[in-house]
Design a protein around this nucleic acid. Sequence first.
RNA 1: GGCCCCUUCGUCUAGUGGUCCAGGAUAUCUGGUUCUCAUCCAGAAGACCGCGGGUUCGAAUCCCGCAGGGGUCACCA
Length: 477
Amino acid sequence: MTPIRTRFAPSPTGFLHVGNIRTGLFAWLLARHYNGQFILRLEDTDKKREVSGSDQHLLDCLKVIGVEWDEGFDIGGPLGPYRQSDRLDIYKKWAQKIIESGRAYADPYTPEEVETFREQARQEKCAFLYRNHRPENPPVWDGTTPLRFKSEPKGYSWHDEVMGDLATGPEVIDDFILIKSDGYPTYNFAHIVDDAEMQITHIIRGQEFIASVPNYLNLYEALSLTPPIMATMPHILGTSGNKKLSKRDGAKDVLDYIRDGFLPDALVNFIASLGWNDGTEQELFTREELIEKFSLERVGRGGARFDEQRLIWMNGHYIRELSPDELFKKASDFWPEAAKDTSDEKKRQILSLAHDRLKTLADLPQLTSFFFIEPTPDWNLVATNKQLKKIERTELQALLKTAHDKLAATEFDEASLTAALNELLQATQQKPAVLFGIIRLGLTWAPFSPGLAETMAVLGKEVTLRRLENAATTIVN
RNA sequence: GGCCCCUUCGUCUAGUGGUCCAGGAUAUCUGGUUCUCAUCCAGAAGACCGCGGGUUCGAAUCCCGCAGGGGUCACCA
């Protein structure tokens, strides 16, 4: 059995959002699953829509999530070039072959004339078919006009690895453009040539192409090519409505998610589980498990909504699975500004307290800022606390003072601090919710924070005592 | 409008004729974990399986119709 070869063939027309990258991810998973090859091809035949720099951006997005290709437009390979704009001669050669076999002809109409035909079809509320206007004696193609495929209308039935058995009638077959008047091939032509030359065995693409497949089948026949196996992915839907995810619904690219503190592994797991599962109740998959278990047959046919909540949950899970060292490395760009002079050792201590609490790495500042800067007392936090708001301010003040004095005589390691807190509880006869509540606020002035003893241990004796004293003196206001 | 595809808890999904008065996860809510938040644990609520007909002793699962949604009908991919 020949090894399978899949490809991801994006266009450099902007950014690669998470919906689009899934197609690439699945193609990659399939290739790896069967120990085949994964090829990265750049489909840059539309000069008008090209956005400069987006080819590099594509590479960055794929690299950051750990998708690696065996041949590609950046690294080359035996069947290149892999950038379509570098393959113009190849398309010309194939075009010549079709012309010679009588299956292509020069399009003599101006775009305006074609638009008139199209408008007419619209008025009659029927599908536009260029072949109804096929010229009887087209001029010899000189490369300045579009070259059209001369189709042979007929019905097709074919198998799609995801969608199952599909069939259409001859009414969908039309004469489409192979080479545009600017000399560049259309996607419709170029991808067929490229997939053949690059020996692609499986085409994985979005459902916007499904309606064109019969036309491709017609062209494969004209070219005497065996079509690759096809797999059509349903769209990923935006957070609202039923349209496919787009930039307009706030779709972000992979790099945006990394910047927002998401982990590549979480992203990969999440994107893979949109529309795919292994048939068990497993939700979390390592990269190796995905490769091992992935199959096209288990890709769902319906569109899946991109639910960021689920991604956040998954990301929290992957963060918790990180070792302290790994987390420290990954978190390096996410520390609050005020942390820049803090030692790595201190940061590691702080990070260990925040570890379980992080949903994304970007949560780090709000979880830890009081370790780096003096928090501003916010008595609203007391006024809205359901235990503390019932207590007289003077009593809270007394508690803070008692705590201060007790802690002044305590070693600042976690065990001693825990013991001291317990003794305070005894001595004051207060509920933990009150005593610990006011101490916690006096120390952090944050709506939430790590456990008390750990927090004090990291803050250190000097800072802890100063903050408690400060809280006690400002409380009268 | 033609053609094609899709349709199970809010969301991601399991489910290929009986073990499904539909399971898991997430999100939500409640309780527990000496304080908050998070984790973890326990529990609750949440889907008349898009609707209507069949077939069958029996259907989320098979068939037919309908509806809704989506895609496509480019010198874009």
